[in-house]
């Protein structure tokens, strides 16, 4: 009986509860350290042998390649860091437009699955099931090569009110004189379209692909959120005389947002990461500029660090914004 009070007398140290955690952690730490040291040692040795040891002086050298469309002014004589910055601006542009588009599409389709119309409901399901089971990259090349590159040019271009879709670009009308609300639509001069706003087909294809793909996932998030609102809320609102769309907007969606916003966060982040597939449809985003830079300079480690850092910052930004939004929509109790 007395021996039971002093377990250390019977238990060897390697089976002692107090030591096991430290032994396990020590072993894991040692293994990780050995592996990392081995890899880093190789990296330094191989990079030194190739004459590519970590240095940032190359970012000041002229890039020597052109970027077809940029928000920031850029030409081939500007340094590499300006090229990467222009790529980053392009990425941010498509991500922002994509977020808005995918949210609108996803909300429409997600709420359509609660329509009283059976056909609309089923079509929403079909859209989600078809889009989610086809790889995004395949959809992007489809939109670019099959749809946007097949658009006719000049007089045959696809003309909608205020919008013209042509092989040479997407032309949008806009107010040229904001004070007098003068509207200028796309117009034909010779066989060339002109408009206040022009987007390239590369941007159009990438944006369409991202919006259609992410929209299907957001639709599922919205559907889950709306389904989480108790049926009684609909019934109560209906008995108070609300119209169906009013119920959705005033009663159901505000409550559903609590469930929707966290789900949206991860969809937004994956949209930002998926925008790196822009290279498949010829749009010069950050990744595609970085790839060219790496091919020209051979600076693999530095370029990878820039890429990973940039996407990490974008992810963190989206997360921070969505967390702020989340606090806004959460249930406020005293």
């Amino acid at each position: 009986m007395g021996a039971a009070g002093t377990p250390s007398a019977v238990t060897p140290w390697w089976r002692d509860r107090r030591w096991i955690p430290w032994i396990v952690q020590g072993a894991v730490a040692l293994a990780v350290l050995v592996v990392v040291a081995f890899l880093l040692g190789n990296l330094v040795r191989n990079l030194t042998a190739a004459g590519l040891l970590l240095s940032w002086r190359w970012v000041g050298n002229p890039a020597g390649f052109d970027i077809s469309e940029t928000l920031l002014p850029f030409d081939a004589s500007l340094p590499y860091w300006r090229a990467l910055l222009a790529g980053l601006a392009n990425t941010l542009r498509v991500v922002l437009a994509g977020l808005v588009g995918a949210t609108v599409l996803g909300t429409l389709v997600g709420t359509a699955s609660f329509s009283s119309n059976g056909l609309l409901r089923r079509l929403a399901r079909v859209y989600v099931e078809v889009i989610r089971n086809i790889p995004l990259l395949l959809q992007l090349v489809f939109w670019y090569f099959v749809v946007f590159l097949a658009l006719p040019n000049g007089r045959d271009a696809l003309q909608l009110p205020g919008v013209v879709l042509a092989r040479s670009g997407l032309y949008l009308g806009w107010f040229t004189d904001p004070l007098h609300l003068t509207w200028t639509g796309p117009h034909l001069e010779g066989s060339v379209w002109h408009a206040p706003l022009r987007l390239t087909v590369e941007f159009g294809a990438l944006l369409t692909g991202l919006v259609v793909y992410t929209g299907a996932f957001i639709a599922e998030v919205v559907r889950g959120g709306v389904a989480s609102v108790p049926q009684g809320q609909w019934e109560a609102a209906r008995s108070l005389g609300f119209m169906p769309l009013q119920i959705l907007r005033r009663i159901v969606l505000p409550q559903a947002l609590r469930v929707i916003v966290p789900g949206l966060n991860s969809q937004y982040i994956s949209l930002a990461k998926n925008s790196s597939l822009a290279v498949a449809c010829g749009y010069s985003d950050l990744y595609s500029v970085a790839e060219t830079t790496l091919n020209q300079t051979g600076r693999a480690v530095e370029v990878m660090l820039i890429l990973l850092g940039a996407y990490l910052v974008i992810d963190l930004l989206i997360s921070a914004l969505m967390n702020g939004l989340n606090q806004l929509v959460q249930l406020k109790e005293r």
């Binding site: 190789n42 191989n46 290279v279 790496l294 480690v301 990878m304 996407y311």
Partner: peptide, 22 residues
């Protein structure tokens, strides 16, 4: 989870050769 897959694949093709002995 913070990195796009394509950058990691690219990293695998370009940096793995430096990380391991020839």
């Amino acid at each position: 989870r913070g990195a796009p897959l394509i950058t990691l694949l690219f990293l695998g093709q370009n940096i793995l050769g430096f990380l391991l002995p020839g």
